[in-house]
Simulated assay, not measured.
Amino acid sequence: MKDYLKTSLVEAVKIEKQYGDFTVHVRIEEISEGFQVLRSIEYAGEEDIVIRHRTPLTQITINADNAVFTGSPVIKQMKPGFQYHPEMPLTFSELKKGEHKVYVHTQFFIEDQKFDIKTKSTIVFK
Rank of each mutant, 00 (worst) to 15 (best):
A12C: 02
E87T: 11
E30R: 14
K120D: 13
K17H: 09
K14L: 11
K114E: 15
M88K: 14
K6T: 10
G45P: 03
G45C: 08
E99K: 14
K96I: 04
M78Q: 11
I60H: 00
F22Q: 04
R54N: 12
Q107D: 01
P56K: 05
I123S: 07
V102M: 02
K118L: 03
F69D: 08
P56W: 02
K114H: 09
I60Q: 00
F82T: 08
F35V: 07
E42F: 07
V13Y: 04
K14N: 14
Q107G: 09
K96H: 04
M88L: 13
H100D: 08
Y103T: 00
G45Q: 06
Q77G: 13
Q83P: 03
E99W: 02
M1L: 12
Y43F: 15
T7W: 07
T55P: 00
I62M: 05
S32R: 08
E42A: 13
K114Q: 14
K126F: 03
S72E: 15
F69R: 09
L57E: 08
F108H: 11
K79I: 12
L5T: 13
L9V: 07
K17I: 12
N63K: 05
A12V: 04
L5F: 10
S8C: 10
Q77N: 13
T119C: 08
R54H: 12
N66C: 03
D21Y: 12
P56V: 04
K114S: 11
L57A: 09
E47L: 03
I15M: 09
Q59M: 08
H85R: 14
V104S: 01
E29L: 12
K76I: 09
V124D: 03
I123Y: 07
E47Q: 11
I123P: 08
Q107A: 12
G81D: 07
P56S: 06
V68P: 00
I15P: 06
S40R: 03
I28Y: 05
V124C: 07
F69C: 10
I62C: 03
T122V: 14
A44W: 04
Y84H: 13
I31W: 10
T106N: 02
Y43S: 11
K96M: 07
K96W: 01
T58P: 04
T91H: 09
H85K: 15
D65S: 05
V102A: 02
V26W: 08
E94Q: 12
K79W: 02
R54D: 08
F22A: 05
D116L: 04
S93M: 14
D116Y: 00
T58L: 06
T122M: 08
Q83Y: 06
